[in-house]
Amino acid sequence: MPETAAIGEVFEVKVMIQHDMESGYRRGQYGERIPRNIIQHFRCRYLGEQVFASEFFPGVAANPYLSFLVRAQRSGEFVFEWEDQHGKVWRRTVGLAVQ
């Protein structure tokens, strides 16, 4: 995403995280079922409000990638959060300056 934007400007946000997204439908070498282990939630907050969120299921490809559009209002922080099925959370924060 850009570092600066004009008021009202629409810009693209691209996010990606390294995760196997093990579907739970695979079997290992000895026929044992490989347990499901996936990221379930992605959230993006901007100016204290949720601007975009997503729920993932096993049909989302490994190393989940997302691109979406946001409208710039004011300067502020973007908080990106991923949460896996065990409640583990990864967080990234990026600032945006709006002129």
Binding site: V10, F11, S23, Y25, Y46, L47, E49, Q50, V51, F52, A53, S54, E55, F56, F57, P58, G59, V60, A61, P64, Y65, L66, S67, F68, L69, V70, R71, Q73
Partner: peptide, 27 residues
């Protein structure tokens, strides 16, 4: 045709731009 039909859902808040999402899925 996937074993689980639902792939993902997306929610759009107040500051969202027009809906145009890109992602990668398993088929």
């Amino acid at each position: 045709e996937n074993p689980l039909a639902k792939i993902a859902s997306y929610n759009f808040g107040k500051h969202s731009g027009p809906v145009h999402i890109q992602t990668r899925i398993r088929m």
